[in-house]
Simulated assay, not measured.
Amino acid sequence: MPQSPWLPGTLLSRLDESARQRFLELGVPRTAAASQVILHEGAQESHVILLDDGLTKVTAAMTDGRHALLDVRVSGDIVGEMSALNGTPRSATVTTCRVSTIRIIRRNDFRAFLRAYPEAAMEIAGIVANRLRVANRRRVDFASYPVKVRLSRVLWEIATAYGYRSRDGIVVDVHLTQSELATMCGAAEITLQKALRELRTVGIVDTGYRQVIVRDEAALRLCADLA
Rank of each mutant, 00 (worst) to 15 (best):
M1F: 11
P5A: 09
W6N: 06
W6L: 01
W6G: 14
L11G: 08
L11F: 15
A19F: 02
A19N: 00
P29N: 03
R30G: 02
S35T: 08
Q36S: 14
I38D: 00
I38V: 15
L39D: 00
G42A: 03
Q44E: 12
E45W: 01
V48I: 03
L51S: 08
D52N: 13
D52M: 07
D53K: 15
L55A: 04
L55H: 04
T63A: 15
T63W: 04
G65Y: 13
G65T: 06
L70V: 12
S75Q: 07
G80D: 07
G87F: 08
S91V: 14
S91W: 10
T95L: 02
C97K: 02
R98Y: 04
S100E: 04
I105V: 10
I105Y: 01
R106H: 09
F110A: 04
L114W: 11
Y117R: 00
A121I: 12
A121F: 01
I124M: 07
A125V: 13
I127N: 06
N130H: 10
L132K: 09
R133Y: 07
N136I: 11
N136A: 13
R137Y: 10
R137I: 08
D141L: 08
A143K: 09
Y145I: 05
P146G: 01
L151I: 15
R153A: 04
V154P: 01
R167M: 03
H175K: 13
T177E: 01
S179P: 05
G186N: 08
A188L: 12
E189K: 06
I190T: 14
T191H: 02
T191N: 10
Q193V: 14
L199P: 09
R200C: 12
G203Y: 11
G203Q: 10
I204H: 06
T207F: 06
G208H: 02
Q211E: 14
I213K: 03
D216L: 07
